[in-house]
Structures are given as structure tokens and as C-alpha cells.
Design a protein around this nucleic acid. Structure first.
Lengths: 159, 159
DNA sequence: ATGAATGCAAAACATTTGCAGCTCA
DNA sequence: TGAGCTGCAAATGTTTTGCATTCAT
């Protein structure tokens, strides 16, 4: 949607307007989130930040993610084992999780989603606030890797 | 779907046919799962079993749930904090989670689901194996409790 | 300068694991 | 009888918390 630079400024702006302090670590996490294309977890974000900010702590990463989430600027995807974070599309949307490589892909919200939610709200008298939709399966890359040439090719391809 | 008694026999049958041993604790968990209407987590199952089997351990509950899950007889619903289990409808289907009372409700799979999955499979070349769809919001009970008479009524109603 | 934010280490959880001993088949 | 199962306790891994110190404003 928005380019990383714009999104970065947006995130910093929001923190500023909320009256929270713009520490170097928060700014760095905002920048990292804005340029992240995947769906990193807290540890991954921490490790990446650590190269530039050797004193940053994992606790600060968690606290800053919580802060951004409270303000609706980060989407948390709760998976088995740990949570993953999206600071670029912080609204409910479906994800595809590959059972082989464990990569997480974004999916567009299908057009009928609105109708579907209306159906559920009517049928169960349930007021929907948000959703987490995850499809598990095999991604295109992993289908190609395992189908054509068979057998396992440890160490031949990139990880 | 099936009544508890039938489902209980089914579960025991499956364990038997798989060649695993029918220990008293496994049989008890099978029975408990078959009569459970909600979506208990491991601790809840453990606590309920403990009243009849004081020596049962939480580890055994986890191991037995894993065994049943491997055989496709239990559905695990991964939520923030812990997993919940359904031994009666062990196939992917949507759930509604109330943000107020944290109750988990079953939803029927909408009829268009098949089409939706075909759309995703085509668009992303992703081979879907299963899904976990969770809608978060306010359930009917909690809407009624908080809307009409306003304010909080601690201790007046049942928990 | 002062209160919010930080790093650290410890705590809090759910879940898993290793293993000696028990028990179902 | 003996492999599979069990309970126990310890280990694991993620996330949270308490608190003295630091730092943005």
C-alpha cells in the first residue's frame, strides 16, 4: 500500500501524537516494521535491531509492539509457538502459512467477506470486531521443489 | 452430529485399531471429550479428569490429545495463550470468540467456503490443507448483559 | 529535572521431554 | 513378560513483569 518511507513517517507521527517518547529504539523498530515485507516475530525483529543497537532488549521490542498494537498500527498474528507482526497492513486479513517452509503469505480479503460476516452476525447474533483467518497448506515454491524432481535435495538449494 | 455415546465408542475404537493401548486414562479422556460441548483447554480437561483419576498427569493429557490429533480425531484451536480442543467436530470450521466472556462458539462453515478456497488456491497457487478461522467480537449474551441496563453489575449474575 | 522508557534478570505461563517404574495386551 | 504408557520433575520457549537506571522532553 503505502511505501516504506511514508509508512515509517506515519508510525513515528502516531507515536508522537500519542504523547509517547520517541526513543531511538522505538524509531528503529518503526523503521524496521515499515521496511519488513514478511511477518517477523519478536525475536527476529530483536535480532535485526541488535546489529544497529547492541543494547536493545527483547522486552523493549515486546513493549513497543504492544504499544503500536494498542494504537491499531500493528497486526498480531497468533500462531502455534509464537506471534508474528505486520506493521504495514495492520487490519484483519487472511494469511497463508506454508506447512513446509513455514513462510507466511498475505492474502487479499475476498470480496464476499462483508456478506459472509453479515451472515455470521445475523445467524449467531455475534457482533464481529475483527478476525484471524489462516489457511495452512503448501506454497507454490514448496510445491515446485518437491514435485518435479522428487527426493530431498539437502543443501543444494537456498534455505 | 453424533451423540456422545457413539462418538465415545468411535474414539476408543480408533485408538484400539491404531494398536495403541487402551489405558484407563485414555478411555476417560475419550469419554470426557465426547461429552464436552465447549472447547476445553488441556488444563480444564486435566482438572476434570483429576476428580475421577487423582493420579493422572497433565503430561498424559497432552500426550493423549497429541495422539488423537495425529489421527485426525481432535481439532486443536490455537489461541493467544493456550490451545483449545474439540473432539466432536475434528475438522476445520470457524469459531467465534467473545472478547468479553472469552467463550468459544462453533460456527457452521458457510456454503461459499469451497468456492472461496478455490479462489485462494488459484490466485496464490497455494494448496490448502486446512484452515483456522476465528472471528473475535461480542457474543449475544454479553451484548444483552451490557446494553439494556448499563453499568457493571458485579456479582449479580452468574459468572 | 522529572517522569516515561529502558535493560536486565527473574517470573510466569503453556507445553514438551527424559526417564524410572508401572501396566495393559 | 515386555513394550508401551505413565507420572514426575525438569527443561523449553515465548512473553511479561519489577525495578533501578537512563534519557527524551
Amino acid at each position: 500500500m503505502t511505501d516504506p518511507e511514508t509508512r515509517y513517517k506515519e508510525l513515528v507521527d502516531i507515536l508522537q501524537k500519542k504523547g509517547t517518547r520517541l526513543t531511538s529504539h522505538r524509531v528503529a523498530l518503526a523503521r524496521l516494521l515499515s521496511v519488513s515485507e514478511g511477518h517477523p516475530n519478536a525475536s527476529t525483529l530483536y535480532l535485526k535491531l541488535q546489529t544497529q543497537f547492541p543494547t536493545i532488549s527483547l522486552a523493549t521490542v515486546y513493549k513497543t509492539l504492544a504499544l503500536l498494537k494498542e494504537n491499531g498500527e500493528v497486526l498480531e498474528i497468533v500462531l502455534q509457538g509464537d506471534s508474528h507482526f505486520d506493521g504495514n497492513k495492520p487490519y484483519s486479513h487472511p494469511h497463508l502459512v506454508c506447512s513446509v517452509c513455514h513462510q507466511i503469505y498475505d492474502a487479499d480479503e475476498p470480496l464476499i467477506t462483508g456478506l459472509l460476516e453479515k451472515e455470521i452476525e445475523g445467524k449467531y447474533s455475534f457482533k464481529i470486531q475483527r478476525h484471524q483467518i489462516v489457511y495452512y497448506g503448501i506454497c507454490q515454491d514448496c510445491q515446485n521443489k518437491t514435485s518435479s524432481d522428487g527426493s530431498d535435495r539437502k543443501g543444494i538449494d537456498s534455505e
